[in-house]
Nucleic acid binder design. Structure first.
Lengths: 111, 111
DNA sequence: GACAATACCTATAACTGTAAGGTATGTCAA
DNA sequence: TTGACATACCTTACAGTTATAGGTATTGTC
C-alpha cells in the first residue's frame, strides 16, 4: 500500500523511444543513455524497461531493426516505420491533452 | 505484455487530490467528479483509485477528515494538513521537473 | 414504489517499470 | 596478459499503481 515518492509516467517510455527514433536510427543502449543525458537524470528508464519495449514495438511493426557492426561492435539499430510515425503523432497529441488537463487543474500556481 | 493506448501517470492522482484540497475542503465523490469536469474527461480516476488514496493520505496525516451533514447528506470532508502542503510543494516541483525533461527530449515539435 | 443519482467502500486483476540477475565482447592500464 | 570496466544485449521475479467490478446505503424524482 506504500505509494513511492517519485512521479512515474506509464506510457512515457514508448513516447520517448518513438520520438528519439523519429530523429535517427539508434540502438537500445544508446537510447537508455540518451534519455538519461538529455533529461539530466530526471528520467532514467532501466534496461528491463527499454529492451522489452523495443521488442514489443518491433512486434507491432512500429519500428524495424537491423544488425550493424560499428566501431568493432555489434548492435541492433532501430528506426521508425510509417506506422510508428502515426503512433508517435497519436501519443504526442495524447500527451499534450493530458498535460493541458493537469495544468488547468493545477492552476496559475503551476506556471 | 499488452501496452494500453492511453498514457497513464503514476502519482498524478495524489498530486491532483492534494492540489484540489489545498483550495478548499472537499469530499471524495466531489473530487472524482471535479477531476473529470475540470479536465473535460481527459483525466478520469475511478472510485477504486480515489477512495483508497484518501484513506492513505489520511493515514499519512497529509489530509484530515470530518463527517459533515450538508443538504441532508452525510459526507466525509477532507482538507489539507500543513504536512500535506509540504508534500504538495514537493510533488509540484517534481512534476515540473519531469515535464520539463520530457519537453526537452521531445523538442520543438512538442510546442 | 421504482429507479437514478449520490456517497461511500473493498477485493481482485492487470499493467508497468524496477531490481537483479545473466551472457558476451571490446578497451585499457597495471 | 590479465583483470577491471564499459559497452551491448537479454530475461525473470517482484513491487507499486490504477482499473474493474463488485458491494452497501441514502436521497431525490417520476
Amino acid at each position: 500500500m506504500k505509494k513511492t515518492n517519485p512521479i512515474f509516467l506509464n506510457g512515457v517510455p514508448e513516447l520517448l523511444v518513438l520520438r528519439l527514433l523519429s530523429r535517427r536510427e539508434m540502438y537500445g543502449y544508446q537510447i537508455i543513455e540518451e534519455i538519461r543525458a538529455q533529461t539530466r537524470e530526471t528520467l532514467s528508464f532501466g534496461e528491463g524497461c527499454i529492451y522489452p519495449y523495443l521488442h514489443y514495438l518491433e512486434a507491432e511493426k512500429l519500428v524495424s531493426s537491423r544488425r550493424r557492426e560499428v566501431d568493432g561492435r555489434s548492435r541492433n539499430y532501430y528506426k521508425l516505420t510509417p506506422r510508428g510515425g502515426k503512433r508517435l503523432d497519436e501519443l504526442t497529441t495524447e500527451w499534450k491533452r493530458v498535460t493541458t488537463g493537469i495544468s488547468s487543474l493545477m492552476g496559475e500556481q503551476y506556471a
